[in-house]
């Protein structure tokens, strides 16, 4: 009996350091954030309980809905773009895996992932500059008259999504490439002997076996899609007008520019619930395969 007790204490001590950080700085803040969202916070420090008023204010604020729609638009463009490009690059790298040069190509595709978001934002703002950006100049030289991406309400979000895909697709590529390497060679050989075509092999063998990897990539990318902030701040600052103001930016501005901390905390809760809901949907949709 005594030994068992000692063992429990030992296990607890192994987990405690991690658990302490986790509770204080990860789980705790979610609960604290909910508490904050129920109050009106005076910049001088006074707080007044107002129940769900902050949430009602959000529901009534057209600017909030605008930010929500913009975030959804960004997610709808960026998520398939990031995961899709990652998958295509992985297939390329996998197909050429027997050549030495491939490791360098892979490194090239991956490198942008290591850049900080400010660098990504600055580079793409310069590339897409309406007057001197090399992308627009090149397109014009080719006889195309491109939109001035970042200055046009309809094009700002797609342009930011493109820059984000450039930044993040490399990590998904590594994930898919590793999953492709896990598929035993015999699977392909058997399929080829049975006379299956390339696309047939892809959709009947590769895609089903990549499901766990696709699910993981989707969840990961959904999260980064909904919390998008830095690249928007640097590339358009939410503009033109509020055409690219996303939820995280709305949160930042209400919290730290208008000092409406309660309302900003409410946005945080909304973001959390969106991520939670979408993750559950993707698990349902793609089937949860426990990796435990």
């Amino acid at each position: 009996m005594k030994r068992r007790y000692g063992r429990t204490v030992e296990i607890a001590l192994f987990i405690l350091p991690f658990a302490a950080f986790w509770i204080l700085f990860r789980l705790g803040p979610v609960l604290y954030g909910f508490f904050i969202s129920l109050y009106r916070w005076d910049p001088l420090g006074d707080a007044k309980f107002i129940g769900a008023r902050n949430y009602l204010n959000l529901a009534r604020d057209p600017r909030f809905w605008n930010a929500l729609v913009n975030t959804l638009e960004f997610a709808a463009i960026a998520i398939p773009l990031i995961v899709g490009i990652g998958l295509v690059l992985a297939l390329f790298i996998f197909a050429g895996r027997k050549r030495r040069v491939t490791t360098w190509l892979e490194a090239g595709f991956f490198f942008p992932y290591l850049l900080t978001v400010s660098v990504v934002g600055l580079i793409w703002r310069w590339l897409l500059d309406p007057d001197f950006g090399v992308v627009l100049i090149t397109l014009r030289d080719m006889g195309i008259s491109p939109p001035v991406f970042l200055n046009e309400p309809r094009w700002a979000i797609p342009a930011i999504a493109l820059a984000t895909a450039w930044w993040l697709a490399g990590y998904r590529m590594l994930l898919f490439r590793a999953a492709l390497e896990d598929i035993p060679d015999e699977f392909y050989e058997a399929a080829r002997i049975d006379g299956a075509s390339g696309p047939r092999i892809f959709f009947s063998i590769v895609v089903p076996l990549l499901r766990p990897a696709i699910l993981f990539a989707l969840v990961l990318t959904t999260i980064s899609g909904f919390i998008v902030f830095g690249q928007v701040l640097i590339m358009t600052a939410g503009g033109p007008g509020r055409a690219s103001e996303v939820l995280a930016m709305y949160l930042y501005r209400f919290g730290f520019e208008y000092l409406e901390m309660g309302q900003a905390a409410a946005v945080g809760m909304v973001l959390f619930l969106i991520i939670l809901g979408l993750t559950m949907v993707s698990f349902r949709w793609l089937g949860y395969e426990s990796s435990l």
Binding site: W22, L24, F25, P29, I36, I223, M261, G268, F272, I275
Partner: peptide
């Protein structure tokens, strides 16, 4: 699994409570 599922709580969601803390 409980620890793992906190992957769904990105830092960004928590910035206001973290600022208070």
């Amino acid at each position: 699994l409980v620890f793992l599922s906190s992957m769904l709580i990105p830092l960004e969601v928590n910035v206001i409570p973290l600022y208070f803390l």
